[in-house]
Structure formats: C-alpha cells, structure tokens
Design a protein around this nucleic acid. Structure first.
Lengths: 207, 207
DNA sequence: TAATGTGAAAACCTTCACAGCT
DNA sequence: AGCTGTGAAGGTTTTCACATTA
C-alpha cells in the first residue's frame, strides 16, 4: 500500500512504540526481529504489527523477519523524526518550569527554544537558558523561527484564550497540559497530557 | 441497559470529560443541558453522548435534556469518584517531586499519602509533608492502608522491575510516567503519561 | 416542539488464514 | 521451514434515524 493512502490515526499512535522497542532491542544486540517477538514485547498481536507496517511498505523478508536497523530508519522517516523539532512553551509556572527542565525531550529531537508568559514579573527571567518573553511577541517569533509545535502549560481558565492566540500563529501541533478539552480548528493537532483524566477513568475498575 | 453489562473502555474514557465539562457549565450558571450542546463543547457527536450514557441508565428527559447536577452525580457515582482515593508514588526524583507538588490531584479526590524510593540518601526526607520511605516497606504499607493506586515516576531502566514489585502488593491501578510500555498481569490497569510519544505521533502530520 | 433512547446501518479496526517468498 | 504481506472475515465503535415522551 502506498505511502500517500490514508493511514488510521491508531496506527500512527503505535509507530513510536515500535521505534522505542526496536531501538532498545538493538542496544541489547539484536539485529533482526519477527513480528511475533516484537508483539510479545509490546503485547500487540503480530498480525497487527504486520498490518500497521504494510500501510507504508514491505519492510520485512519472508521467513526471516525485519532488520531492526533499517526498520527503525524507515519508521523514523515516516514519522518525520529524523530532524530536530523546535518548539515553544506557553506558561512558565511551576508546571512549565518542570517541562522546560525535563531531560527527556532533547534526546528525541524535541527542543524548546522559546518560552512565553504574560506575567510581567516573569518576563526577562531565564529558565534552563531559555529567556521568558511576553505573549505579544509570540506571533512574530513563531513565524520567524518556523516553529510548528507549542507546549501549553497555562492554567485551565486561560488555556482556551491562549489557544485562540496560537491559532493565529504558524503553530500546527499543541501538546496540551491544561486540564481542558480545547476546541481547535481543523488541521491543528492536539495531544492532551491529563493525569487526572487517566486516574478518573481507572477508578471505574476498582471495586 | 443495566449497569452490570459490559461497557466499552472508550466509553469509560469519555465519562471524565463529561463530568468536567458539565461541572464547568454548572459554575457558569446552567442547570440543564442537551446532548447537542454538551457535544458542541467537547467536539463529540450528540448521538455518541446519548449512547454512552445509555449504558448506565436513562438520565435525560425527552424534549428537555439532562439536569446537570443530577447527571454529574450519576457519572461521579458510576466512576467511583464520590470518595477520596489514596495513592502512593514510587520514585522521588525530579519528576516524582513535581508530581507530589502538583496541586491538581487533591481537589479531584486523589491524594498521594506515601512516597517510596530506593535511594538511601532520599529515604527519610520529606516532600510536601510526605515522608520518603524505602521500597522494602511498600508491601506492608500498601496493604495496611488499602492503597489501590500507584504512581510510577522512576527511570525507564528500572520501571519494569518496580512493576514486578507492585504486582506483589494490593495495587490495582498504575499511573505510569516512565517512558516504557509496561507488561502487567491481567486485572492490573495501567495508564501511561508519555509526552514524548505524543510529540512523536504528531510530527507525522506536520508537512 | 424539542430532545431522548435505541435498534439497525455504517464505518472503522483487528484478527484470521494462507499464498508466496527466502 | 519460517515468516511476511494481505484480502477477507470478524468484531467493535460510531452514526443514523425515528418512535417515544415531556
């Protein structure tokens, strides 16, 4: 199946899991893998893995399996992860600072290069070498730096307003830490990080 | 449809969203709502909302809609959220500390009451009034306090080992911040908080 | 009239099962 | 012999559409 045909979003959501597992297996010395053993590792059926991959090409060898190194390269390329993605963060409160200091993004190619906050007392300060700028500069900076990803770490009460501002910039993807379900126009992608929702949906299963 | 019949997990995942939106609408002064206006707010079809609710009972009035207050009460009860849920956290590094200090859990009834870490230099310290205990005490404490929920904030390299420990306790639900897809036995529920995966699945849609 | 609750239809996603390649 | 790639089958979730009720 050709790369330009429609791929279900659930498939896209699994690809990063494959990359991560394959990368780890690679560091453990493996060079080749079958859909069965990858599936065992991730608790996903082998058929599903093969079907997912088949949306993008024929990466395996019958009777042998997949060469890990080249499969990782393919998946990395499909997701657009073979480059650095610059982002900005909006909201530099307690949570925003923790996100800026989180060391897990940079090794995966995601770098926060600008921070914005409307609190005048914060503007001008520096967090992890990133200078905090006022919100009214966001439009120009996002455009000049071709930033596509924004990380949202503002209080719930103002999150929707900030999103309205972001819509007017070049931003195409939002990683939203505010506990709201934001309304966004078509073409803007949002992923919500919402631990309270996760907890609230688990209690249903507890006695 | 009766409450004991099987309810798809996707439905359970949406109920907290409904509670949150309804609660906010309530503070805005509304007392009654239709599936249409709730759906507009959450970008969910009215039919889906009505179908979701129909798994649990008939909460609306034809021609009128739903009384917000009583619908919130029903949903809260269905999810088991009309009580306090105590939890423990494992791993008190940078991330663990941020989670302990996060003010969003307590207002929703989730309270972290114990913290565990294997680093002897941390044991005995206090974070936000919670004393850090050594891992070898977790089994007894979880049992004595009937704790069902654990929050996992340890490095990826040891996360699977910690989960093996947790399986031996009474823990029934894990909120996992470690960037791995943990293998857990049947009956143990996991929700993963993984911002890197979220970012990696968005880049596919950028250019 | 307005909006629910729900069978039935449609859309979507996963699994099966096997031809075909190495 | 072993494992991929994939149509077709099976299962699940969403949407439709309308009878029903306030």
């Amino acid at each position: 199946m050709a790369k330009d045909s429609f791929v279900p979003e659930v498939v896209i959501l699994r690809l990063p899991l494959y990359i991560r597992a394959l990368t780890q297996m690679s560091t453990e010395g493996q060079t080749v893998i079958s859909s069965k053993s990858l599936g065992d590792r991730l608790q996903i059926t082998p058929a599903q893995i093969r079907k997912d991959l088949s949306y993008f090409g024929r990466f395996g060898k019958q009777g042998r399996g997949y060469k890990i190194e080249s499969l990782v390269a393919e998946l990395t390329n499909i997701l657009g992860l073979n480059r650095q993605w610059n982002s900005c963060i909006v909201g530099v409160g307690r949570l925003g600072k923790a996100i800026i200091n989180y060391p897990g993004f940079v090794p995966e190619g995601f770098k926060i290069i600008y921070a914005f906050d409307n609190d005048q007392s914060k503007v001008g300060q520096t967090v992890n070498e990133i200078k905090i700028l006022p919100m009214n500069e966001i439009k120009a900076i996002v455009k000049d730096n071709n930033i596509k990803i924004a990380i949202l770490a503002v209080p719930a009460t103002i999150a929707q307003n900030v999103i309205s501002d972001l819509v007017e910039t070049n931003i195409k993807a939002i990683l939203n830490y505010a506990p709201i379900a934001p309304k966004v126009p078509n073409g803007l992608i949002v992923r919500n990080i919402d631990p309270v929702l996760s907890l609230q949906s688990m209690t249903y299963y507890l006695d």
